[in-house]
Write a protein that binds this DNA or RNA. Structure first.
Lengths: 105, 105
DNA sequence: CCATTCTATAGCACTAGGTGACATAGTTCA
DNA sequence: TGAACTATGTCACCTAGTGCTATAGAATGG
């Protein structure tokens, strides 16, 4: 049992699906939908929601920013609605919202 | 035992540190260093490294992009060195590199 | 064998997200 | 009182990221 259990499991599942696909059991369309299906849904977060997420974790804007690898001024702008988080930023925030700050540590 | 174990644990640890701080055992400097200390170090990733990370997970650029909530063209640019991932993107990639794709699903 | 789909690369125009630095003000605390 | 932490604010800058479209090779399927 390695430490990369989740990663290996992911690879294993994908390989199994790949085998099913090669075997003609499923097509690539389904294969792709399978990949998309197991993702956490991303919805645009309101400024208050972002602030709520941060305060739920009991951290300052500066510390929160460090976790996300962004500047603290940007976090401030998110929470005031001056800027809205985009692709990767929104994904990270969604992860924190669902699973907590520790999962992105 | 709730599902938010990690998050609660994080909050608990922070509250404990906060108590220590209030009690005068540690100062805010140390408090801040504590927060920074438990983060996965972020280093700039080379194009080949990004491609290696993706191929290790056995997914196409399109699927990989979906996981990170970015466009597939951007992933292509990352791997060819046309664009370099920044703050939140770099954090996400680092997470995938360390813990696997499943942890950001 | 041909048609289709997936794949990755490529180019281009646009825009807004993110950076950095610095100033301000309220607060907590030695 | 002074020092450090907090959040907000502003300003200028710029590049990361988007969206669309086109291309070409490889893999697949009928």
């Amino acid at each position: 049992m390695s430490k990369k259990y989740k990663s290996d499991a992911m690879a294993a599942i994908h390989e199994m699906m790949e085998d099913l696909h090669v075997g003609g059991v499923i097509d690539k369309q389904t294969m792709r939908r399978f990949d998309d299906a197991c993702l956490t849904p991303i919805r645009p977060l309101k400024p208050e929601e972002i602030k709520a997420i941060r305060e739920r974790e009991h951290v300052s804007q500066a510390v929160f920013a460090n976790y996300l690898n962004v500047t603290s001024s940007l976090v401030s702008k998110w929470e005031r609605g001056e800027k809205r988080p985009s692709g990767a930023s929104l994904k990270l925030l969604s992860l924190v919202e669902k699973n907590g700050l520790a999962t992105v540590a």
